[in-house]
């Protein structure tokens, strides 16, 4: 081959076809996957919480994809395309250093548990290696009316003051609680 333009244009044209066939076309078709029956878009607070989840990179350790395998049964029913109809950006993940969160809203519905766990995971699961998200909380001498204080077990609470959940923490917990798999039945 001694014509550089033929080489570049031929290789580019072939790869361009692959981009359309393997990227654009599947993306376009699957973007129209209908939601599972009863699935609702996130509320404003849940959507803000999802933004915190994305900004902190939670999906590098937590998948949101239950596989049709025996070992995944503990996390819920196998995920279907319709579960992700309102899920953009997609957060399926490729690493499961921590548990899958597809159905965490049903599996762990307690606000208090989530707040303690976000502030210090080792307060609840001693062997956990999850980072502490202390910057989603404030430590203050006392709480004002309407503020959410986090009841940490002895040894994990700061020496002075109380731990208060910021708006970001509240949004994130709202999002985590929204992660509930809907029963299939009407969807094949």
């Amino acid at each position: 081959m001694n014509n550089v333009w033929v080489l570049v244009i031929a290789a580019g044209a072939i790869y361009g076809c692959f981009c359309i066939l393997m990227g654009v076309a599947p993306g376009m078709i699957l973007s129209h996957t209908p939601p599972v029956a009863g699935l609702k878009p996130l509320t404003a607070a849940e959507a803000r919480g999802r933004d915190v989840y994305v900004a902190e990179g939670c999906s590098y350790c937590h998948t949101q994809n239950v596989r049709p395998l025996v070992q995944d049964k503990v996390f819920g029913r196998p995920s279907v395309g319709g579960d992700y109809a309102y899920d953009t950006p997609q957060l399926l993940g490729t690493e499961r250093t921590g548990p899958d969160l597809s159905n965490i809203g049903a599996r762990q519905p307690s606000d208090v548990w989530q707040y303690i766990h976000l502030y210090d995971p080792r307060a609840l699961v001693h062997e956990s290696i999850m980072p502490r998200y202390t910057w989603l909380f404030q430590v203050r001498p006392s709480a004002s009316a309407g503020e959410i204080t986090v009841p940490l077990p002895p040894g994990y609470a700061p020496a002075n003051g109380v731990v208060i959940a910021t708006q970001q923490a509240q949004d994130l917990v709202a999002y985590l609680k929204s992660l509930k798999q809907l029963p299939l039945g009407t969807v094949k």
Binding site: C19, S31, T88, Q90
Partner: peptide, 22 residues
Amino acid sequence: ILLGITAYIPVYQRGLGQVAVQ
């Protein structure tokens, strides 16, 4: 160059569609 352009056009990247593009 082609891949980078394909990856950043959002119109065909909703829900499961984005999984395919990713």
